[in-house]
Design a binder for these strands. Sequence first.
DNA 1: TGCCGGATCCTG
DNA 2: AGGATCCGGCAA
Length: 183
Amino acid sequence: MRILPRQFYDRETAQVALDLLGMLLVVERDGCKKVGLIVEVEAYLGEHDLACHTSKGKTPRNEVMFGPPGHAYVYMIYGIHHCLNVVTEPAGRGCAVLIRALEPLEGISGKTSGPGLLCKALGVDRGANGLDLTLPELCIVEPGQHKKIHAVKRPRIGVDYAGEWAKKPLRFYIRDNPFISRP
DNA sequence: TGCCGGATCCTG
DNA sequence: AGGATCCGGCAA
């Protein structure tokens, strides 16, 4: 078990997304530790990706996405839910990976199949925006025994407005895992 | 300043 | 199928 180093995130975004499958997301606060296996992710490729928040340039909301890799980008959606992303590639690119579903392993109550649900179950909100993922409070670790992952590739969810970019297979999930948000 | 719509989820 | 419910982004 080791916390993934910043170097892990400083790579091509779709590759980081694929490599995140099977890793453990850990939240440790108030002496309470919550651990979930990452089973579903989506890659957002930066300013030229019309489905990506940074495709319209830098704003106060997406500022963290233009910062250095290995930090959390958390935003509120539909006025109700939060979504957790990890920033990838060198600073300035505006790329990130959305964590869409977890398989609960430790200290988690509530559903974790869906980006809004997993944030609720982990207690993640915009207070976590910008957190350094190489620190223990919110981090991703490589499990001791790393199973071989069979990744399924599908178009991303909820980005129909993004034209050709909506069709690209940038959603990845672990085949046959029961905790994915949808087939 | 006002309006429109969203990387969702739950209920009927 | 539709509502909840807030804020970011853009037009005026």
